[in-house]
């Protein structure tokens, strides 16, 4: 079955791929904080953050179209909030669409929200795409994230593909028995989804039994090799510090330019 693996760019040569995952996590969090602390309408600053992200993508062989498409996935979540702003924010009218009067501060706020959400989501997706998933988990473990949370992430990642596989198989089986009909009735689609949920539940029980068989007693024991060397960690941590200081320090006047 075909899958688009979340970390499928991790094997390409590039700057991000060669960095220590712990540093990458720190740098990404720094970048996301920098994005989130950017004031409303700070076009130049958002532009600089976008340029930084573009540069990292290019230097890490991440196709820009790929990054942009994945980043846009955040629109269904940020979009509705942003779209309400031009109507909700008081201020001078910027333009009217039919009976709707869009305020200038509200429109600027909407554009800022969408841009910030896009930048933050893209940065996280670029991190995930250029880091092997088990290395990412090791880095998060190094930052002392709770084991149970990491176990859930690992299981989610591992079994997502199996559920998707099963879904594809069920869909294929359905197609072979309905030649020429590609639009499935809602009842059939619902039955397929119910079947998938039931199978997943059964599988969860079998997986748990398999864990018990190999001595699992509710405690996750790990013996993970630490990723990469200290030098590499320092270099990539520096990226995080720079990004954070960019967010927190008093920045030059030119960066204060807003709409």
């Amino acid at each position: 079955m075909h899958h688009s693996y979340i970390d499928h760019l991790a094997h390409r040569p590039g700057i991000l791929q060669s960095l220590d995952p712990r540093g990458k996590v720190a740098a990404t969090i720094g970048y996301v904080v920098a994005v989130s602390l950017t004031p409303n309408g700070a076009v130049l600053r958002l532009g600089l953050l976008l340029t930084l992200l573009l540069g990292v993508c290019i230097a890490s062989s991440v196709p820009l179209a790929y990054a942009a498409k994945r980043g846009l996935l955040v629109l269904p979540f940020a979009g509705p909030v942003a779209l309400a702003m031009p109507l909700a924010q008081p201020g001078p009218i910027w333009t009217t669409i039919g009976p709707l009067e869009l305020s200038r501060p509200g429109s600027i706020l909407a554009a800022t929200i969408i841009t910030k959400a896009f930048l933050a989501a893209t940065a996280l997706l670029v991190l995930a795409a250029t880091t092997r998933f088990n290395h990412l988990l090791a880095a998060l473990r190094w930052y002392r994230l709770p084991d149970i949370f990491l176990s859930i992430l690992a299981f989610l990642y591992r079994y997502l593909f199996i559920v998707v596989d099963e879904g594809q198989r069920v869909a294929r089986a359905g197609r072979t028995r309905s030649p020429g009909r590609y639009r499935r009735p809602v009842t059939t689609a619902a039955a397929m989804i119910v079947g998938l949920v039931r199978r997943s539940f059964d599988r969860a029980q079998r997986v748990y039994t398999a864990m018990l068989a190999r001595g699992y007693d509710g405690t996750t024991r790990s013996d993970h090799a630490q990723p990469r060397g200290a030098h590499n960690l320092v270099v990539s941590l520096t990226f995080g510090v720079i990004a954070l200081s960019f967010a927190l320090s008093p920045y030059p006047v030119i960066l204060r330019w807003t709409l």
């Binding site: 998933f133 690992a154 591992r158 199996i162 599988r203 068989a213 190999r214 001595g215």
Partner: peptide
């Protein structure tokens, strides 16, 4: 500790990253 069981479906058994 002393018994090993190989399950019929390896996808049920291989759960680590």
């Amino acid at each position: 500790r002393h018994i090993g069981l190989l399950f019929q479906n390896p996808d049920d058994q291989l759960f680590m990253p």
